[in-house]
Amino acid sequence: MRPKFIVGGIVIAAALAYMIYAGVTQSAVYFVTPAELRASAVAGKAYRLGGLVVPGSLTWEPRTLDLRFTLGDGTATVAVHHKGTPPDLFGEGRGAVVEGTWSADGYFRAGLILAKHSEEYKAPHDASAAGYRELIRTLQGAGR
């Protein structure tokens, strides 16, 4: 058998082994929810936390790059601190997954912020058009 195939075979086997390892250790429980973190938080342990950015909780200081917000899942919330610029799709009322550690001081220190977006895609004026239709419906007193 030619050495090319042996090398190729080893590379493929190693890649597959690594991916299955990553799949079992990381993908199976990709993130914990705020409620799950609250139930069993260990200070200093690394977590991936996912939830919705609670509207009104987001503050960002462009000069110091201090980003603070609260992640919620409907039952529990967790305060998150981060230093850096968030991705474009990050924002209040949107989904986010953060990587970091639980601090003993009662907040989550995030090293990486990931934005989780929905599967919906809208044209620019769609939202306002829907609002307009909604407005007309209420003006007509149609109720539902």
Binding site: G9, I12, A15, L16, M19, I20, A22, G23, Q26, S27, A28, Y30, P86, P87, D88, L89, F90, L112, I113, L114, A115, K116, H117
Partner: peptide, 24 residues
């Protein structure tokens, strides 16, 4: 959009596995 080139979530992991299996 997400803020990362790559992450090992189930979708990205499974599609990578599919790619490597067909390479094999």
């Amino acid at each position: 959009t997400w803020g990362t080139w790559w992450t090992w979530d189930a979708r990205l992991t499974s599609v990578s596995i599919m790619f490597v299996i067909y390479l094999a």
